[in-house]
């Protein structure tokens, strides 16, 4: 479904990604784990068109999307919950969701369906629809960020560190919901530092170190790997 070929991204003269290759198949949850500054967010930004890679290509359903602008990618079915959530703090929860569905705003019925679906996935947001989003707790904000992305009815959902700054129990809750979302047919690319949780729900994983993919395997093997254990699972 998604394929990166030799993707190389620079910030000025700093190379953040040195030609990475990854692929995500339809229906999978794939995780990308890596330490701070490894280039995980850079990869998400490059896929979603927020920065232009210097070389390499991105394919989505066999179509070259390397230079497609972000708003068209959302229409094509790729949406993300960005690093740091970036919800619209001064808007209400409802308005945030409405913006998430903006690309389909003409299709009232679809918006209504997605709205109900998101609220049933995240009942905690449902009670806070008219509250301004900035007053939500961190966990609720993360739920809103995911819900907002779901409103565009993505076929590929990308999440950049959804566990950031959340208590373990909240992380578990959110990851369980991600699994539900996946079972509803959404393919997921999950970027995480919290390798434990990510590997728990994913089928395959990649390990990124200073801009290069150093390992790629199914989650069982990654969980068993000594190197991964030492570096990312804190054992």
């Amino acid at each position: 479904m998604l394929q990166l070929e030799n993707l190389e991204v620079y910030y000025g003269s700093i190379r953040a990604l040195n030609g990475i290759n990854i692929r995500v198949e339809l229906g999978e949850i794939v995780t990308m784990i890596g330490a701070n500054g490894a280039g995980k967010s850079t990869m998400i930004r490059a896929i979603s068109g927020l920065i232009r890679p210097r070389s390499g290509k991105v394919f989505f359903e066999n179509e070259d999307i390397t230079t497609v602008p972000p708003h068209q990618l959302v229409e094509m079915g790729i949406c993300q919950s960005p690093e740091g959530r970036r919800i619209f703090a001064n808007m209400t929860v409802r308005e945030n969701l409405e913006l998430g569905g903006y690309v389909h705003h003409r299709n009232k019925r679809q918006i209504r369906e997605d709205y109900d679906r998101v609220l049933s996935l995240f009942p905690r947001i449902k009670d806070r629809l008219n509250q301004s989003a900035g007053t939500l707790s961190g966990g609720e904000q993360q739920m809103l960020a995911i819900g907002r992305a779901l409103m565009s009815r993505p076929r590929l959902l990308m999440l950049d560190e959804p566990s950031l700054g959340l208590a373990p129990i909240m992380v578990r809750q959110i990851f369980d919901i991600l699994q539900d979302i996946n079972q509803q047919g959404v393919t997921i690319l999950l970027v995480e530092q919290n390798a434990w949780q990510a590997l728990r729900i994913a089928q395959r994983g990649y390990v990124l170190e200073t801009g290069s993919v150093v390992m790629e395997n199914d989650t069982q093997s990654l969980l068993a790997d000594e190197g991964v254990k030492n570096a990312y699972l804190g054992e």
């Binding site: 927020l50 972000p70 959302v74 960005p82 970036r86 998430g100």
Partner: peptide, 8 residues
């Protein structure tokens, strides 16, 4: 940036 990411 968030607006961009939401398809605006």
């Amino acid at each position: 940036i968030a607006a961009d990411a939401m398809g605006v």
